[in-house]
Design a protein around this nucleic acid. Structure first.
Lengths: 202, 202
DNA sequence: GAGGTATTGAACTCTTCAGTTCAAAAGGTG
DNA sequence: CACCTTTTGAACTGAAGAGTTCAATACCTC
């Protein structure tokens, strides 16, 4: 019954994603998408309502296919997971630098409302996953604050991945950061910190 | 000798900057720029060669008018300067969130070559300024590594400023980060860190 | 292999974009 | 106040943007 289509929704998302990732939503044209996916406009519009809908679907596809979640739920929970997450979650492929979510944060004002929601929800989820891993390490440290620091550091790593920094240098930074986290944890309550209102330590 | 113009180059840059800042280069249209600056296209093109040239000029104007440099060269050098820089450099105005430079890093692939160079040079300069402030604090710590961490953290803070995070929460994160830096410094060489190849400590 | 349905791709629309042109207006100067 | 240079704003251009339409094509079913 009728001609079968040449493309799959999955396949389109997989090939459209790197384009949006590299050029952003406003920076991507329909011509770019046609060329990348190999699917004509009419095909794309048959499957997706609009460029915005395709973007949102790409965002969701990204969430579903990335390893981030798996990395942060691996047993045993702890610093190890966080270190692996920081190292492996940000991509460094030519057309997929850093993290699609973090990149999109820059463009928030130009994005469809639904995309903004997906991003906000994604961040909440990330914080939860981080929290679980930090919590098992040391109750002396204010878990939420540490998670915030890790989140900021992750965003920074991702954004800087847009420059030419090679993976090796990024790994070095991550190691240093983790070392700092572990030291801070070890010395919690040791009296070394004399700030008037220490917030990192309970 | 002819009619005097109603606008100044300075004034245009000052009003164009927030538009580029908020919507990025590709997200900004000439109509946006006309409305924001109050200057007609023909006026803009009389002063600037192209949209790209106006963007680059805005980027340079940003560099020249920001307090970042002053904050990092204030005497005495040290953690205090860095903390003030992290707190005060990222803007949180409605249409100027985070740092224009960091925001532009996301868009690098759509930017004119000259803009890319300005950004790269700006980052080198920032690293130098950070270095001077870190160096005076403690020779036991690998200065360059610490600077990299601060730079990543700064980028992260700036990118996350694009979300609705209020200044108060950002300040809290910065205090925590600085605390960690200071603790790491204090415990350098204390034997708490047992990694096989510690890179943060000399 | 004929029939029927769904996909396809090219041509088309309408809008917006960056950039140009130029007659009219404006104001300093003598 | 008349002259002359310069700015100005509106109309214009050509290209590129998103999104639509539809005849031709492909392929599955019977």
């Amino acid at each position: 019954m009728g001609r079968p289509r040449k493309f799959s929704r999955e396949g389109v998302l997989q090939t459209a994603l790197p384009v949006f990732w590299k050029y952003g939503f406003t920076g991507t044209t329909l011509l770019d998408l046609e060329q990348a996916t190999g699917v004509n406009k009419s095909g794309l519009y048959a499957e997706f309502e609009s460029k915005e809908a395709l973007f949102v679907a790409s965002l969701r596809h990204y969430l579903d296919t990335r390893t981030g979640r798996a990395l942060l739920t691996a047993e045993p929970l702890g610093w190890g997971n966080i270190e692996r997450f920081l190292e492996e979650a940000p991509s460094c492929a030519f057309d997929q630098r850093g993290c699609f979510f973090v990149n999109s944060m820059r463009e928030l004002d130009c994005l469809p409302a639904e995309a903004r929601k997906v991003i906000a929800d994604g961040r909440v989820k990330l914080k939860q996953l981080l929290r679980a891993n930090v919590a098992v390490e040391n109750p002396k440290i204010d878990v939420k604050s540490v998670c915030e620091l890790i989140s900021v550091f992750f965003s920074g790593i991702c954004i800087e991945a847009n420059l030419n920094t090679d993976r090796k240098r990024a790994r070095r930074k991550i190691r240093d950061f983790m070392e700092m986290l572990r030291v801070a944890k070890s010395t919690a309550g040791s009296g070394l910190v004399q700030d008037s209102t220490p917030s990192l330590l309970k």
